[in-house]
Amino acid sequence: MSNVVQTTFANMIFEVLRDLRIAQRVGLETIGGFSRTGWMNVLIVITMASILTIFGSLFLLVEQSKTFVSTLGTNMEMSIYLKDSADINDVQEDLEALPQVASISVVTKQDAWEKMRSSYPDFPEIQNPLPNTIHIQPTSPAEVPALKQGLATVEGIQAVKYPFEVLKKIQAIAKGLSIFGSFFTVFLGVLTLFIISNTLSLLIQARGREIEILRMMGIANWYIRLPFLFQGILYGLLGAFIAYFPVSFVEGYSHQAFSFFHLVSNTNHLTMAMALMVAIGTLVGGSGAILSMRKYLKI
């Protein structure tokens, strides 16, 4: 029994060591691939870094804009002026029942008048002309249209004031930036895919003799393919690493620009952008390699 265990253990160790040696060979083949690609490596990495920089920067700007709109929206109050005949408590209850309302503050006509009088002591003695006012904050800017509909059902409201058009414009800019960014990223992604695929195809063609020998000697297809796949993926990772520097500069710049409004507080955008850049770089690099292998490495 113990002999069987020993043999199994020895076999396991043997297989692990063999796999490690194969991994080492694949690593060396990958490095050899970079060495053989020469100056084209620089072109590919620069192209990859450029597409990821553009993507990362646009992503950051869109996300910062979204946060800006969101913060602006929730900071912007809707001021609801009541009719003289309306009971302020009834209206407050009706408003509190609306799901889009985040918070409410009530300013009675007396409070408003006294505040005004204290601000302007020389104000003439006239009858209080101010209405009862309720300030509400929507749960999010996106809920504003629904909230407006809800307000229409509440009795006793004379007028509602809200800088909705400004918000709508900022939202439209963010949306436009997002759509443009997506299309531009896809376009550059396809371009990079094409460059990587063609470069690796040239490399595969140049190594045709070696690949034929390997195939004839019974080397598994994955061993032949993996170095090309790793090379493609490494282009993506290297591109993402280089793109980090300009993108972090853009992040710092935009953060500073939006900070002027004292509105932006989300600092996770750079991390999110980096994660996406690494994912896109890997995907584009790997896909480029697979594409070239499908074309020239029919095994």
Partner: peptide
Amino acid sequence: AYVLRALGMP
């Protein structure tokens, strides 16, 4: 040796 190495031989 090329093929033997690719097969992970010691």
